[in-house]
Design a protein around this nucleic acid. Structure first.
Lengths: 174, 174
DNA sequence: AAAAAAACAGACAAGTCTGTCTGTTTGTTT
DNA sequence: AAACAAACAGACAGACTTGTCTGTTTTTTT
């Protein structure tokens, strides 16, 4: 495993688990067992690493979502299973929420470089629901519920509102 | 105006505008024109200031919301006006989103002291909608849409999804 | 007016952070 | 084997951070 891979592997864990600002370069290179000079050979700055992290997280997260819901073909069950995926991820990752939304709160609002990466991730999620539900107002409706489920379960460290959202969706897609 | 008041006044602006971690004690006391020793006379730590800030922000935000929606008596229009309040605040505060959710992303997830303040703020918001809409599943539904509206407008620096949510609510409360 | 309390300025400690640099060692390619 | 490239360890600069402490000045209370 190359140094660059080792860095990304540890970054994936640390940035998500402890956040962007709370995770130092020194901690990353120590855990990845990479020399500092080597780190800066591959990433020109911490911001650069952040973009790389977000791209990694993007593929990782979507791959998992697709996998988790791949067996479902009916729109309604596919949507409901997507919400189950949130529960699955919360258990797996201790209610740490969404890396993209977390970083949104950590960067200055004029950082367009990172902001655009965050935006396109969420845009892709929006499209994910549009591909399941043809009605655009309805698919956005579900996207919004999905987003708040992520946030609320992080805040309350509970899946309760996800379960409740599933009930809501039962009636929406009746 | 006392030093403590001047500190809270500036903190209210800085923590919301630039975030918790990005705002230093030194910057606060400089802008508030307060000596450092005086600061630590009133607040025993930055975390202590954070709690005070959240309490201030809580009253400030709810007072504004109540005021903005006080003229509306019908449940439906009161809810819709609440969403207009988000637009109003976005324009006023440059799409900085919710201080409570922002700080949620900035603190370590085991900081129960601050976490409980965040939780009770959102609990109050949930109750706010429960007082308008008797049906609990429906009021939570609206609460969830409200929450994602805050997040999404911060992310996309746009009120588009708020307007769309208003359309959704039109049909929900038909 | 005298005494007590509060706020002042600002140095300082001890730690953090990112990013640069020097020089050595390892691994690969020719 | 010689030459090149990559990774290594780790010191260092420079700038931050929170929080403490000293001593002076201002304000309030008695």
């Amino acid at each position: 495993m190359s140094p660059k891979e080792r860095i990304l592997e540890k970054t994936l864990i640390l940035f998500h688990q402890r956040g962007y600002n709370a995770t130092g370069i020194n901690q990353i290179i120590e855990e990845a067992k990479v020399a500092k000079a080597s780190f800066y050979q591959h990433f020109k700055s911490k911001e650069d690493l952040c973009v790389a992290f977000l791209n990694e997280r993007h593929s990782y997260w979507f791959k998992q979502l697709e996998q988790f819901t791949s067996k479902e073909k009916e729109p309604k069950t596919k949507v409901l299973t997507s919400f189950d995926f949130l529960i699955f991820m919360n258990e797996k990752e201790n209610f740490r929420g969404c890396s993209f939304l977390n970083i949104l709160s950590e960067i200055p609002s004029d950082n367009t470089k990172i902001l655009s990466v965050l935006q396109s991730h969420k845009q892709d999620l929006r499209v994910y629901f549009q591909n399941i539900i043809v009605d655009k107002l309805l698919s956005d409706h579900i996207y919004l519920l999905f987003e708040s489920c992520i946030i609320e379960s992080q805040l309350f460290k509970s899946n309760q509102l996800i379960e409740q959202s599933k009930e809501i969706i039962q009636t929406l897609l009746a």
